[in-house]
């Protein structure tokens, strides 16, 4: 009863009493883990041999709405690094001497570690062939300048045979699910990736335990939008890297070669 009755009794005025030895450590301003304004957004990308693909478009778009870019180049053999250097918002650019794409979890972990050195409030994990629709870009600041949720997911669409249609069938339906790419960076929070060689989640698994927001904002994945030869090359690459379907679906790999895939026209949201 007394406890209930004492509900209104609280310590409010912060008069300094006897200071302990820890006091000096603590006196500095404590950085709040969640802030409603002024959040810094850092995009992080891993790239490799991106010449002639979509990297310029992607970096141009990102430069328009993020505060900084962090890039890990996975031992490109073309001028990908030089291309990245043209963008002033690139705050960190790590060039690996040997490729890590055969151990993708190491690449993801490295990218996260480097990105965390920019003291971000939020991290956006982007691949070199992904473009956010305008609605998503407009919403980006409100999405991060809040203190209610710690990650945001989007609907990705696998563009196929060009930039007008996305694939929509049994094996290609990522747009029906949510993909988490934007997270609040929480210092000290576990940032382990599963030790998988391929198809590693782009963000540390533990972040999924935090409250998040699902959105209907869309992302164009252009990795399959190229010509037949580029798809064939990717098919062979997947089959070589994962011949037994340990990391992905063999049926999906085979469906890359489908000559008549079911496609749906992309319409820009108003």
């Amino acid at each position: 009863m007394l406890t209930e009755m004492m509900g209104s009794r609280s310590a409010t005025d912060l008069k300094a009493g006897s200071e302990s030895s820890e006091a000096a450590v603590a006196r500095a301003t404590i950085r709040r883990v969640r802030r409603r304004s002024g959040n810094k957004l850092t995009a992080m990308l891993q790239v490799r041999n991106e010449r002639g693909k979509y990297l310029t478009q992607v970096l141009e778009q990102l430069s328009g709405f993020v505060d900084e870019l962090v890039i890990v180049d996975d031992a490109s053999e073309d001028d990908t690094v030089a291309l990245c250097r043209k963008f002033p918002k690139v705050a960190r650019l790590v060039e690996l001497p040997r490729p890590l794409f055969g151990e993708e979890w190491k690449l993801r972990s490295l990218l996260w570690q480097v990105a965390s050195t920019t003291e971000p409030d939020w991290l956006l994990s982007v691949d070199a062939d992904e473009l956010y629709e305008d609605r998503a870009i407009s919403a980006m600041r409100p999405l991060i300048d809040q203190d209610q949720y710690d990650w945001v997911s989007f609907r990705f669409h696998d563009f196929w045979n060009g930039l007008t249609h996305y694939r929509d069938d049994e094996h290609w339906n990522i747009h029906r699910r949510q993909t988490m790419t934007l997270v609040r960076y929480l210092p000290g929070f576990p940032c382990l990736y599963p030790q998988w060689d391929h198809h590693v989640p782009r963000l540390p698994l533990a972040y999924a335990a935090l409250p998040g927001r699902l959105t209907d904002f869309r992302v164009k994945h252009l990795g399959w939008a190229g010509d037949w030869e580029s798809k064939l090359a990717k098919y062979h690459r997947y089959k070589a890297l994962d011949p037994e379907g340990k990391w992905g679906s063999l049926a999906q790999y085979e469906s890359i070669l489908d000559l008549n895939p079911k496609l749906t026209e992309w319409t820009e949201a108003t």
């Binding site: 006091a23 006196r27 709040r32």
Partner: peptide, 23 residues
């Protein structure tokens, strides 16, 4: 600190630390 009450407590703890009351 995800609930409203927890957020208030978190804020108070931060203020204690910022005011030199680590104890």
């Amino acid at each position: 600190a995800l609930s409203a009450d927890d957020r208030l407590r978190y804020e108070r703890i931060c203020e204690y630390a910022e005011n030199g009351r680590a104890d």
